[in-house]
Simulated assay, not measured.
Amino acid sequence: MVSGQQSEGPAAAAARLSGFEAVPQGRSGTLSEVVLTKGDRRVDAVVKRGHAPGATRAEAAGLRWLAEADAVRIPRVHGADDTWLVLDRVSESTPSHAEEFGRNLARLHSAGAPAFGAPPPGGLTDAWIGTAPMRNSPGESWPEWYAEHRVLPYVRIASDLLDPAVFERACARIPSMAGPPEPPARLHGDLWSGNVLWDSDGAVLIDPAAHGGHRETDLAMLHLFGCPHLERIVAAYDEVAPLADGYRERIALHQLFPLLVHTVLFGRSYAGQATAAARSLG
């Protein structure tokens, strides 16, 4: 880290990382709005301060990887280091273009990943989903990888709130419940409704925990936390990349991951939901 970066303000960080002049416009928590200018160019931008060293650099790598698919719209990254991230600001509007989002999400997933658990190029093995740890360790078989890296680590962290035996039994059932094998998809990785912003042109994805995974995990997050026009989104997705038979019966399986993450982050209120999802697997 360059000396003094920890104490600099968001506008100064935005100017340093983007090469533009930066004028502050307002601040809320870890997010600050700035206007970037260079000659006749003007960009409304957001400056984000990371919760841990490297978190913003990892998020920038995920945003760029998702953007490379040229599918769902992703805010442009103007610069990032281990403390700060500068990206386009989304001017939010009424949710619209739901079918377009569904089709584009299918294309994003179809862009693929080298392996289950593969981090984005330039991303980190030890990364985060929100402020919870998330290890990007590649694996070849999704059922085993999902149990080892997306279920059991969070059960261990929250073992005071959970009965590990319930989740161990659920993990033993994953191979028989996973459906037909699928190639690794390019996942957003934290696709709850708050990370799907809508402007006048449709959906824009922010705050990824991007990695290679099963495409149904992203869709399960949308089902878990709600999303405007969800049935229209899924129907349009299915037209472009048909979902395997039994997709809806597997939603609880894929929701184990976000429910356990939320148990780690927010405690007992999610522990019961995670346990119910695990028990529903038999």
Score class of each variant (00 low, 15 high):
residue 166 V to N: 10
residue 99 E to N: 10
residue 153 P to G: 04
residue 98 A to D: 02
residue 130 G to D: 05
residue 162 L to W: 09
residue 243 L to Y: 03
residue 180 P to D: 15
residue 30 T to Y: 11
residue 139 G to E: 10
residue 37 T to V: 12
residue 278 A to N: 08
residue 80 A to M: 11
residue 201 D to F: 11
residue 70 D to V: 08
residue 76 R to N: 11
residue 118 A to L: 04
residue 129 I to E: 01
residue 184 P to I: 07
residue 10 P to N: 08
residue 167 F to M: 06
residue 251 I to T: 10
residue 234 V to W: 00
residue 278 A to M: 09
residue 236 A to K: 03
residue 56 T to Q: 13
residue 12 A to G: 08
residue 197 L to P: 03
residue 165 A to D: 15
residue 30 T to E: 14
residue 266 F to Y: 07
residue 226 G to R: 01
residue 80 A to E: 13
residue 249 E to C: 02
residue 69 A to P: 01
residue 211 H to E: 13
residue 110 S to Q: 15
residue 25 Q to S: 12
residue 44 D to H: 14
residue 93 S to D: 15
residue 258 P to T: 01
residue 217 T to H: 11
residue 240 V to E: 15
residue 215 R to H: 13
residue 207 D to N: 15
residue 21 E to M: 10
residue 168 E to I: 12
residue 134 M to K: 12
residue 125 T to F: 00
residue 217 T to I: 07
residue 22 A to S: 14
residue 59 E to H: 06
residue 157 I to S: 09
residue 198 W to C: 03
residue 56 T to G: 07
residue 251 I to K: 02
residue 189 G to E: 04
residue 148 E to F: 01
residue 182 E to D: 12
residue 42 R to S: 11
residue 98 A to Q: 03
residue 233 I to S: 01
residue 232 R to E: 14
residue 45 A to C: 03
residue 171 C to P: 09
residue 191 L to G: 04
residue 30 T to W: 10
residue 70 D to H: 13
residue 235 A to N: 09
residue 123 G to R: 03
residue 45 A to E: 02
residue 121 P to E: 06
residue 259 L to I: 09
residue 75 P to A: 11
residue 202 G to D: 05
residue 245 D to Q: 13
residue 172 A to D: 15
residue 261 V to C: 04
residue 194 G to E: 06
residue 38 K to A: 15
residue 118 A to D: 00
residue 220 A to D: 01
residue 33 E to R: 15
residue 243 L to F: 02
residue 95 P to L: 02
residue 9 G to W: 04
residue 77 V to T: 14
residue 60 A to F: 00
residue 19 G to M: 04
residue 138 P to A: 04
residue 185 A to N: 08
residue 264 V to S: 00
residue 67 A to F: 00
residue 255 Q to A: 09
residue 218 D to V: 04
residue 18 S to F: 00
residue 238 D to R: 04
residue 23 V to Y: 12
residue 155 V to M: 02
residue 266 F to T: 00
